[in-house]
Nucleic acid binder design. Structure first.
Lengths: 113, 113
DNA sequence: TACAATGCATTGGTTTCTTATGTATCTTTG
DNA sequence: CAAAGATACATAAGAAACCAATGCATTGTA
């Protein structure tokens, strides 16, 4: 089962920031594969979604980049900036809190009519 | 604290369907107020988001409507159709499963480098 | 040598939400 | 009783975020 794409909306930035905070530096393709593996294929980040997100995070100053070459093939590594390190904690907290709220909402019992 | 709007994305339909499955029939304004109260103001569904969603659910055949008048003021009640009753269970399950996966992703420990 | 995998990226389109606006009625308060 | 706020519907223009498709190039594998 693959989650319908609408669910991913709004969580992608947080996922990326969290991965970067746990792994120091990662490149785009690595991020897609890591998420795919960790979620047993349930979350598949497409490149068309990932790269714009990474570029946006860079513009916001939350990540920095460095380019390496493996043979002739380019690799662009992304790392958290100091601002990014602060932000990731906030984002993860907010998402965790949101999920608590949603869990509550989904478990509600009928009103007494 | 109000959750950043991007988090709501993708969950609105599920929230609405779930509320309808617990309350038999509800009208738009009631839905916004119920969500606001239940989440202690943390989730505020705007009318500009809700009404298009309700209309879409109706077009998809997941909800049916009936109009009532309280004095001269209109109320449009929404109820789950049989299809809707089936769908809401799937949607809630999927969202619950997605949140499990996200919880796991957010708790991951650093890789051994 | 062809195909799959790795790795970057962009473009066009759709969905979904936000902000703003519009109309109208009912209730509360100074 | 007038004004303000709450109730109740709805749409329209625009932005944000994602998807599908595509493109280019290199490396590994059958």
């Amino acid at each position: 089962m693959i989650y319908s794409s609408e669910l991913i909306k709004g969580t992608l930035k947080t996922i990326v920031l969290k991965l970067l905070s746990d792994n120091k530096k990662m490149y785009g393709y690595e991020i897609t594969q890591t998420v795919k593996e960790m979620t047993l294929d349930k979350i598949q980040i497409t490149e068309g979604a990932l790269y714009p997100t990474l570029h946006a995070l860079e513009e916001e100053g939350l990540v920095t980049t460095e380019t390496e070459y493996i043979g002739k093939r380019m690799r662009k590594y992304y790392s958290l900036s100091p601002t990014g390190k602060t932000r990731v904690k906030e984002k993860v907290k907010e998402l965790a809190s949101f999920m608590d709220t949603m869990t509550f909402l989904l478990d509600i019992k009928p009103k007494i009519a």
